[in-house]
């Protein structure tokens, strides 16, 4: 077996536990089915390009992006735990290189993100199937967004985990950052109609770009603006990935 596969195997073994599954899958489903339908009496329609969506399908598509972001926490937690509990050094003194370690984390994020996003898409499908509009262009766009988003948020989580040693610091910072990302984004509500400073904040947030692209892919509405968002997402994730890799290769023992 390739060293990266062995590390991915280990990563999945240590990160998949009931608490994580609840956080990862059940939590978004509760959002879709409880919040989604509970708000329907307040929000009948969400305008989306030339269409208008009902709130549950708007929210369900947003949850896929939200879920990809959450999966990347796995990598941050793995790196942080490995440093705290001495496993990073132990692995690095074994038959592995730092490149193996970094790539295995990305692969882990990819797997967790893809599996849980598919699960949510599958369970959420009845909610948004009426408005779905897949074409041979939109599916690659969704896959692109999933990969770029994983790399981007995975890099952010890695950067935080390499900078912080105390458990309080790590938890507080990572939860604050991801909470900000989640709620100041278009995952739960559209940018149109939001009051001005908030609307600007939405677009300072990479999750907005990720969610917008996925939504455009699912509902077949790829506009020029979405293409600009794709370029921004790709550039930002490349930059953050380089920074995260640099920090990780520089970690001292």
């Amino acid at each position: 077996m390739h060293p990266i596969i062995r590390l991915v195997n280990r990563n999945l073994t240590i990160s998949i536990n009931p608490g994580f599954l609840i956080w990862q899958v059940i939590f978004p489903l509760i959002y879709i089915f409880v919040a989604g339908f509970a708000y329907t009496s307040l929000i009948q329609q969400v305008p989306f390009g030339s269409k208008s969506l009902d709130y549950p399908s708007f929210l369900a598509s947003g949850m896929i992006g939200f879920n990809i972001m959450n999966s990347t926490l796995v990598s941050g937690i793995i790196i942080w735990n490995d440093r705290r509990h001495g496993m990073f050094e132990q692995i690095m003194s074994g038959p592995f290189t730092r490149a193996h370690y970094i790539l295995s984390n990305i692969a882990t994020i990819g797997i967790v993100g893809l599996v849980s996003a598919s699960l949510i898409a599958l369970v959420g499908y009845p909610v948004f199937f009426e408005s779905v509009d897949f074409t041979f262009i939109t599916i690659p766009v969704i896959v692109f967004a999933a990969i770029a988003g994983s790399v981007l948020f995975g890099s952010i989580a890695s950067i935080i985990s390499t900078r912080l040693r105390s458990s309080e610091g790590f938890n507080v910072i990572i939860n604050t950052v991801f909470l900000f990302f989640a709620f100041v984004s278009t995952a739960f509500y559209p940018a149109e109609g939001a009051p001005e400073p908030l609307k600007t904040f939405f677009y300072l947030n990479p999750l907005t770009y990720l969610v917008d692209i996925i939504r455009a892919g699912i509902f077949g509405n790829i506009t020029e603006f979405v293409i600009v968002e794709m370029i921004i997402l790709a550039s930002l994730s490349s930059v953050l990935f380089v920074v995260a890799t640099k920090l990780l290769t520089r970690l001292d023992f």
Binding site: M1, R6, L7, N9, R10, T13, I14, N17, N81, H85, G86, M87, E89, Q90, I91, S93, G94, P95
Partner: peptide
């Protein structure tokens, strides 16, 4: 080579037998 460093190293959530098994797996 094999290395047991001075600082503790462990996977907190794994059981003793699982951590031995997984370590063997990591070494192929």
């Amino acid at each position: 080579i094999g290395v047991v460093l001075q600082q503790p190293s462990y996977e907190p959530t794994l059981t003793v037998e699982k951590s031995l098994e997984k370590y063997g797996m990591m070494w192929n």
